[in-house]
Amino acid sequence: MSILNKFRGKSLWMLHYCTGCGAIEMPPVMTSRYDMERFGIIPMATPRQADILLITGYLAVKTLKRVIRTYEQMHSPKWVVGFGACTVNGGMYWDSYATIKKLELYLPVDLYIAGCMPRPEAIMDAFIELRKGISSGKYEGWKKYIENYDWYKKNQAKLFDVKKWSVNYE
């Protein structure tokens, strides 16, 4: 299985979803100045096709519902990378009623990047580290989600009604 991990490491498809403010540092990484495609990382449009889910910065509770459903739609093996301070311990919005504080309680995060919006080099660092880690089979976040699934669901249930939430519109 480790040979397949090599291939998984070399071609990580990132979900094109700017959940927070850190996504403004993704364009320089995706495009010509830092060019993450050299590592085989390209932005994919739907969760079905993506391997990494980038939580770029803070997460409003409304976005958390969508992110969880998106995460559950992704095909495993899948990984989550937390950008910046807001995913670690609430960041600047530690006292805001609308954002979550510790991403760890709701999603199995494989890697956190320091920075209040990490620099492109820091993001590239994370991709290289993720690549090495996946090739050596170190990052198993998606297994963790399956193993203690109900712990995650209990945390999520504290914030919103996990089963029956839906968009309210006319």
């Binding site: 397949l4 291939f7 070399k10 498809w13 495009t31 495609e37 050299r38 085989g40 095909h75």
Partner: peptide
């Protein structure tokens, strides 16, 4: 104006896709 992936990247992508674990 960027370097782009190695030319064999498409093979790696295909093998990775085929090596995906879940089928929905």
């Amino acid at each position: 104006r960027r370097y782009g992936p190695p030319f064999y990247q498409q093979y790696i992508d295909t093998i990775k896709l085929l090596a995906k674990k879940t089928v929905s």
